[in-house]
Amino acid sequence: MKYPVKLEKEITADHYQITVPDLPGCQAKAKTIDEGLTKIEQAIASHMSILAEYGEAIPTPHPVDYYVNQTGQSGQNSSTIWAITKIDISPYLGKSHKINVTLPELLIKKIDHQVAQSPAYKTRSGFIASACLSELQK
C-alpha cells in the first residue's frame, strides 16, 4: 500500500516532524528529509505490528490530494512537503494458509510471466495476494 507522509518543518526548528495521517500516532522527527523517510518507514512497521498483534485492521490510505485539499498549505511559520511511502502490508495480515484456487491456464501463464519479469513479486501467490489487496482497497 502507498501511504501519504507529511513532512513539516517549522521555520525556527532544526528538524522535520513527520506524520502519516492515515495512521494516527505514527510519527517521527528527523533533521533531513531522507532520514525522516527512513524513520517513518520504521515507525509504520512498528505501528502495523501493533495493529496485527491486537487483530486490528490495516487502515486503507487516502490519496495525497485528499489531505492537501483538506488542509491546504501550512501557515507562514512552517513549510510542508508531502511524500508517499510504499509499505508491504502482507507480513501484518496474519499467518498464511494454503488454499486451492482454480484459474484458467492462460491466466496462470500471464501471472507467471509477470512474476518472472517483475522483482516486486517473488511468487505466484504473492502476485495473487497483491492483486486481491488492490481490488479490496477499491
Rank of each mutant, 00 (worst) to 15 (best):
H47Q: 11
P63L: 00
Y66L: 10
G75R: 14
T80P: 13
C132D: 02
Y54G: 03
E105L: 12
F127V: 04
I84G: 00
S74D: 15
M48V: 06
I128D: 02
T102I: 13
S118P: 00
F127Y: 12
K95D: 08
S118Q: 08
V68P: 07
Q70R: 09
V64N: 03
P61E: 01
S49P: 11
L106K: 12
A129W: 03
I108V: 08
N100L: 03
Q76P: 15
K86R: 04
S118T: 06
I111P: 05
I84Y: 00
C132K: 05
N69F: 04
L106I: 11
N100F: 00
P63K: 02
D88V: 10
K95S: 09
E105A: 14
I84F: 00
Y92R: 06
S79Q: 15
V101F: 06
R124K: 02
P104D: 13
H47S: 12
I81L: 07
V115L: 03
A45S: 13
Q114G: 00
V115R: 02
D112I: 01
G126I: 04
I89T: 14
G75N: 15
A52N: 10
L51K: 08
Y54C: 07
T85N: 02
T71V: 09
L93F: 04
N77I: 15
I99V: 12
L51M: 12
V64Y: 01
R124H: 03
L133P: 02
P91M: 13
D112Q: 01
K98F: 02
H62Y: 02
I84S: 07
S118G: 03
E56M: 05
H97E: 10
Y92F: 15
K95Y: 05
Q73E: 13
Q114F: 01
P104L: 12
K109L: 01
P59T: 05
Q70L: 09
E56C: 03
A57S: 09
H62R: 09
I84K: 02
H113P: 00
H97F: 10
T71F: 14
I87K: 01
G75F: 14
Y121E: 05
K86T: 08
K98L: 12
E56K: 04
A45Y: 11
H47E: 12
I89M: 07
K109Q: 05
L107Y: 09
D65H: 11
I81C: 06
